Simulated assay, not measured.
Amino acid sequence: MSLFWRIFLLNAAVLVAAGALLLLGPITVSAPVVLTEALILAGGMASMLGANALLLRLGLAPLQRVTRAMTTIDLLSPRPRPEVAGEGEIADLIETFNSMLDRLEAERATSSARALSAQEGERRRVAQELHDEVGQTLTAVLLELKRVAGHAPEPLREELIHVQEITRGSLDEIRRIARRLRPGVLDELGLVSALTALITETPPPEGLVIRRQMEKDLPELGHEAELVVYRIAQECLTNTVRHSGATLLELSLRRRPGGVELRIRDNGRGLGGAPEGAGLRGMRERALLIGAELSLGDDPSGGTDVRLVAPVRNGST
């Protein structure tokens, strides 16, 4: 039965019941109307409106539930789905909304995968160009400076050696940036070694202590999942070093039933209810891409607590 006919029949039932009470009951209306009759009619009208409102609220309750779901659902993780309840157009509306969420989730996963794949490809290209073009050019400059410094008089030689040291520092920085853009150690030595190298190469501000605890014998995650874990750890370390003002950061990588848990905690300022930026949103999108569980929040003792549980590949343990 359509929503129109349901509402029509509810109102008709109330009106018929009121008419039957007037016809069959002992109530009469005088001309002019006396106060007692007016009060009885007013009470009957109020009862009729109350009954009509109650019946409509019961009939439209599923529609109100789906309206609340539409306004409060998290589009990055639209679960659980609203329960299909009611009849007619209301049930059809809830089913259509759930189907729309299914399509949205599938399309978001596909588009996120394409975007992240393109991003990683661009990072590899930039890292390769930094290594091959800029790195080789600076290496040639270093060799030329060394040759010129060997034939230069003493005062000029010291200046050339100083320029040589500056150039060598720039070359080391470019190589470090290239490694962060394209973590070759992740492909060659695995996730634990890549995270260890990431922590070692991240220059902490004065007063920040970084502690790590990583299990060696971890189940196989697969290249895509390992890259997601690495990028999320990289984003957390960058945020802590730049913005948190923390004095302690703890990173752990442990085996969990059905997955591997990455946990990063610090004692800094915490999120503090700040709006979600591109970095945090990117972390959530990466986690959803591999079906991982990601929680971000303020640690009860102060600071930020990030927890990622990545599922293992092929159900290995």
Results as ranks from 00 to 15, higher is better:
V33T: 09
S295R: 13
T167D: 04
P311H: 11
L156M: 10
A178T: 05
D172Q: 11
L156D: 11
P203Y: 01
L288F: 05
M1F: 11
M100A: 15
L116F: 12
R256D: 14
W5T: 07
A17S: 09
M283T: 04
E261R: 11
T240D: 11
Y230M: 01
A91Y: 06
N314Y: 08
E105A: 14
R284A: 05
F8C: 03
L75E: 01
P300T: 06
V228K: 00
L251R: 03
S47N: 02
A12F: 10
R256W: 14
H151V: 13
E87H: 12
F4A: 04
L156R: 13
R313H: 10
G270H: 03
A287R: 05
A197M: 10
L296F: 08
E215N: 08
R103P: 00
A113Q: 10
P80H: 04
G135S: 03
D172F: 04
L39H: 00
E224K: 12
I40V: 15
T110G: 09
L54Q: 09
E144V: 07
L15I: 09
M70Y: 04
E158L: 15
A20C: 09
R114N: 03
L9H: 00
L58E: 08
L58V: 03
V185S: 10
L221R: 05
N239T: 14
P300H: 12
S111C: 00
N267G: 12
L21D: 10
I40P: 03
L221D: 09
A109H: 13
A118V: 03
G270Q: 05
N314H: 13
L189R: 15
A53G: 01
R211Q: 14
V163M: 13
G150M: 12
S170H: 14
L181C: 07
E105I: 02
R286T: 02
V260T: 05
P257L: 01
L75P: 00
S295N: 09
L262Q: 05
E250Y: 06
E215P: 05
A292N: 02
D132R: 13
E261H: 01
E107A: 10
M45A: 11
A152V: 06
E235R: 10
G302W: 13
A287I: 05
P203H: 10
L35G: 00
